[in-house]
């Protein structure tokens, strides 16, 4: 089958290369850098003389953002938000992988708990925030718990899937060579499940970020989310925009940093996949 498809596939690749070659490289790279610059410039100039209260000039927003970062209160808010996010995400990852390993290896446990887990997974994580608020109040523990729970379920479910999809041959190899259970766990089971676990963590990270903001908006007074909502409610529009910009940048950075981590951990997997695609 593969031998029949090969000429067709190589023709496809060739055609694709030709199409890519139609536009010169400098134009493509120029466009890649150019359009974002043009868009930011467009925002800058279009909003320059804006009197619309909802859309103040970009210059005003950036000036306000700069001002805010000079105040210690604002920096404490940022620290609180990011600290909660990182701490909760790490806890969720550790807990999710541990529980996932247990459930992935024990058939009885997974049969017993999977329906309950899938139910929890189906609840929009933000909806759990009011529950934690009502049980624990407006303390920081509420936010940590909410974020952890939000990130936990994607990690847990992907770990279960990853552990269960383990290759039978590798399992036999481990048994024939009498690997100890810790060798099996760290050298075979976890690396094999790593691609799935890390995509679960990626989903979990975004959920954690959403719930970080939501938990601050729902009745906390510290944190970037709380400050942004407060600014909206008090019509300090430039402050609100500054908060939105910063939250957007943090959301992007969180995913970006995680992607760097993922590429490092999964170097073998990404390279092997690329190799397969080229064949």
């Amino acid at each position: 089958m593969t031998t029949i498809q090969k000429p067709l596939r190589s023709r496809t690749r060739q055609a694709r290369r030709q199409r890519a070659a139609r536009s010169p490289r400098w134009l493509l790279i120029g466009a890649e850098v150019g359009l974002p610059v043009i868009l930011i410039a467009a925002w800058w100039f279009a909003s320059a003389g804006s009197t619309n209260i909802f859309f103040p000039p970009l210059q005003t927003i950036l000036a306000r953002l700069w001002q805010l970062t000079q105040t210690s209160e604002f920096l404490i808010d940022i620290g609180s938000s990011l600290g909660n996010l990182v701490a909760s995400f790490v806890i969720a990852c550790l807990l999710g992988v541990l529980l996932g390993l247990a459930l992935g290896t024990s058939r009885f446990l997974s049969w017993l708990l999977e329906p309950v887990i899938h139910f929890f997974r189906a609840i929009p994580p933000v909806a759990l925030v009011p529950i934690f608020v009502s049980l624990l109040g407006f303390e920081n523990e509420t936010r940590i718990l909410s974020i952890t729970v939000a990130a936990l379920f994607p990690v847990l479910i992907s770990t279960i899937d990853g552990v269960r999809a383990n290759d039978e041959t590798l399992d036999m190899v481990s048994r024939v060579y009498r690997l100890t259970w810790s060798e099996r766990l760290f050298e075979v089971v976890l690396p094999a499940a790593a691609p799935r676990i890390l995509s679960g963590m990626q989903v979990g990270l975004i959920a954690a970020f959403v719930v970080m903001i939501a938990s601050e908006m729902l009745g906390s007074s510290t944190g970037l989310g709380a400050k942004t909502l407060l600014a909206q409610q008090t019509f300090t529009i430039a402050d609100m925009w500054a908060g939105i910009l910063l939250l957007g940048i943090f959301g992007y950075l969180a995913t970006f940093l995680f992607e760097l981590f993922r590429r490092r951990v999964l170097r073998w997997y990404i390279a092997a996949q690329q190799q397969e695609r080229q064949l």
Binding site: L28, A31, G243, I244, G251
Partner: peptide
């Protein structure tokens, strides 16, 4: 078109991971 793909890549990559809750305050306001 490869040209459009390249032109939009940075923008798409930037906005992809940002959840809508970030812009919720301004959307509610408007």
């Amino acid at each position: 078109s490869p040209l459009v793909m390249h032109a939009t890549r940075v923008i798409v990559e930037f906005f992809k991971p940002i959840p809508p809750i970030v812009v919720l305050p301004i959307v509610v306001l408007v």
